[in-house]
Design a protein around this nucleic acid. Sequence first.
DNA 1: TCACAGTGCTTTGAATTCGAACATATACGG
DNA 2: CCGTATATGTTCGAATTCAAAGCACTGTGA
Lengths: 183, 183
Amino acid sequence: MTDTRPAPDAAGQALDPQQLGAYFVLMEAVSLLQHQVEQQLRTEGDISYVQFQLLARLAHAPGHLTMTQLADGVVYSRSGLTYQAGLLEKAGLITRGPSPDDERATLVAITEDGRALLDRVLPGHIQVSRSLLFDPLTDDDLRHLGDIMTRVRDHMRTQPPRSAAPRKRRPGPTSPPPAATQS
Amino acid sequence: MTDTRPAPDAAGQALDPQQLGAYFVLMEAVSLLQHQVEQQLRTEGDISYVQFQLLARLAHAPGHLTMTQLADGVVYSRSGLTYQAGLLEKAGLITRGPSPDDERATLVAITEDGRALLDRVLPGHIQVSRSLLFDPLTDDDLRHLGDIMTRVRDHMRTQPPRSAAPRKRRPGPTSPPPAATQS
DNA sequence: TCACAGTGCTTTGAATTCGAACATATACGG
DNA sequence: CCGTATATGTTCGAATTCAAAGCACTGTGA
């Protein structure tokens, strides 16, 4: 076998096969889960997983949310959100209106129909998740999994800019050259 | 099924809030991770995550793989794989050829250029994964995560057929299939 | 040999997604 | 008060994805 394994640049360690394996199996399992979940949502509520996420976040939000807040919460590009919001508004599941404070902002809220749809699909959604994800896990596994992923999520949320924000507020300790975009 | 009618608002659900939380945070964290990883692969190797997965699987495979084997391994529709294989072949990263045994089968293999590309992007790929995923985790966390997701993956792999849309059991209005679905 | 079901892959059409460019609105410095 | 930079949302074009339909081959039974 050709062992073409060039030593990684400077800082390179031989990659932990255990880390690599955990990472790959994580991505694979989530992909599988997402496919099944998507199919379930489409069958029962005729919505996609993204739309489900949007509705769920709006349902849990206190009042209205701006488009950017919503996109950030769901890990989504703003243009993609515009598209989905158009669909959801046309379906009567959400409302879009101007903000009294900022003329440029658009406030989004869920409608009663949206809440009803969410309530209708949620049980089945949970059932699928349970049979695929929770079934082979013990309570301890589940607690550990939630704990682990929460830490990972929080860690990632502090690191990178999301959606398309070039620089909202980025206290980067090692990013002095913001690539002077001046003319 | 019919008595599951909890209050629409938060709180009272027959659904485990802990399960739900673990599930949601899992999906969110993986989404974030995938976005970052995708960006890294695009920057360093000008490939998508799917293409990276395909190359990685081919690199680890003993010889050639059929399209279906490859699609199943990567959680992918076969038509989508045709598209990506076309791109990868055009880029000279893989080869497609007929099978000596089955005329209808297409055997796929990675080229030297493909291996070289993989070796070039892998270190950066691992670095991103490490800084985002492994960094906030202990070795024990990582071991547990790999174990958990492996079990979940295996569990899901036994349940539903992926990619290969079961054309075997066509639920036609006539001629009920006489079962006996054996491999 | 022939018909027919089963398998492997590709083509097609529609839907979804993102990044870049755009129009508008706000904040800041002079 | 103007001029520039920044923020917000939308539009546009390109890329990607999937399911359904189609084509080609295989294997089995009559």
